[in-house]
Every structure is written in C-alpha cells, then in structure tokens.
Design a protein around this nucleic acid. Structure first.
Lengths: 128, 128
DNA sequence: GTAATTGCAAAAATTTTGCCTCATA
DNA sequence: TATGAGGCAAAATTTTTGCAATTAC
C-alpha cells in the first residue's frame, strides 16, 4: 500500500467531489455515471475510502445521513439542516471556536468534528 | 404519534442502554437478547429511533462506525478512539467550550455535536 | 514485467417495512 | 376494546469483497 498509482478513475472521482456538495458515495457515483458509464460503484467507495485514509479528502458522519465526503480539508465545521439535509461549511474563527488543544481527556487528538444541527435559512423562512 | 404506551420492551431497552457504553443498535440487541430472547431486533431499532426523536436519548454518528446511542442527554462531547473504538464522554466546560449561540451561518440551531477523534490513553500507551 | 487497481457480480452488513398478533390504557 | 406496539421475516439499503482482467509505473 506504499505504491499508489494515479488513475483516470481517481482523477474523475476527486474532480466530481470538488464540484459536488458533501455527497454520499452513492450520490457521487450517480453523478459520475452519466459521463463515465464504466466507472463502477465499488471503485467510488474504494477510492473515497482511500482518499479519506490518506487525508486527501474528509469523511463526514452527519446525524441521520449516510457517510458523506468533503473535498475541503482545511479545518471547518458543518451546519446541517435537519429538514432538507443541506450542508454548509463554517470556518474556524468565523462562527466556530478554534479548538487547538492537542489532548482532551487523555486522548491524543487527531481531528475534531463540530456539527451544528438545525434549520437552514430557507427552511426557516418556509416555516413562517 | 401522541399516544405513546409504556411497554416492557421500552423499559428493557432504555435500561440496557443506560448500562451500556454508547452501543450501536445491534450491539444493544445482542446484549438484550441473552435475557430477553423474544425481544426482536426490529424493536430495538424502532424504539431507539423513537427515543432519539423524542429527545429521551441521543443519537451519535461517530466517524467510521455505525449509529450509536447515548442515554445521557445533558450537553457533552465525545472522545472517540480511532484504534479501539472506545468512546469517552467529555462535559462542557471541562475540556469542551460552551457553545451557546442560537444561530450559526443563518441556521437556527437545535443541537451541536462535538467529536474528538484520536488515540485513547490505553492505545497511546500500547503504541510506546 | 509486476503489482496496484478496476469492474462486475455476489456477499455482507445494516436498517426499514409489511402485516398479523398481542397487550396497554 | 380500540389501537399503539411488537415479532418475524422479507425487503431495501448501504458497503465490502473475491477474482479475473486491465493498466500505471
């Protein structure tokens, strides 16, 4: 697992992820399939998993939805609309406190996930 | 969905959840089954889902694991060991900042999840 | 040339649903 | 006794895997 190769599939998947908005693996596969009928679903799952392991992309586990992926790797949190499922990036220092500890409760920290669940502006407007 | 009934199954499930440590629905089912062979897996999923919707318990989506449940509803974050999967509660004000905004990026907030991923003290010790 | 990678289909694993029966209020 | 809830098995998802064929290096 040292010798990684650059393949057309990896390029297509990463490119599609950058254009998409926090998609699940299946959602990304559906989008990709239109232009690349031969790229298989298994490859999308496999490649996204590898990318996440390698820190090239970020894996998200938002409440009440399947695993999603994010091409942005700079530290940021997510707002997640419980009604329409929309996800909005929120960057540190903006609304989000900068959590810089290296250790919490004896754990050596590798990453921190902050998820804000609520109603997005659109759904909020519709409710009133 | 107004008239909820109190059943033996709900009591058993809630009780087991309080004794368990952030289990998945299936893990909780396995535990419960020993003493309650007739309580079905579907009931565990259904009841945990209802409890979470009603705010009686909390649903967790930690990175790289299935949905977990937490009987503690007071605000707290989680440390999650990426190696052994162990989950440790961390309460606000302790290591965790108190995030009290009602609104972020135009979203009306309903809940906030903070997840610290890293190596727990035990795995850290084994690594050295 | 060799080993990583893909595609495909099958298998696992997880979660949901239908429907009939049971039991709570 | 009316109807919410549970049991069971089947279905629907989502994700993983085995293996032969392919392709990057």
């Amino acid at each position: 697992m040292e010798n990684k190769r650059n393949t057309e599939q990896k390029r297509v998947i990463l490119n599609a992820l950058m254009l998409a908005d926090h998609p699940t693996a299946s959602e990304l596969y559906e989008r990709i399939r239109d232009d690349n009928p031969h790229l298989s679903r298994a490859t999308v799952f496999r490649v996204l998993g590898q990318f996440a392991d390698d820190g090239v992309i970020r894996k998200l586990n938002l409440l009440g939805s399947d695993t999603r992926f994010d091409a942005r790797t700079t530290p940021h949190a997510h707002c997640h609309c419980v009604k329409c499922g929309r996800v909005t990036d929120v960057f540190e220092g903006d609304f989000v406190p900068v959590l810089s500890s290296q250790e919490v409760a004896g754990y050596k920290l590798l990453s921190t996930e902050i998820e804000f669940n609520g109603l997005c502006p659109d759904c909020l407007a519709k409710d009133n």
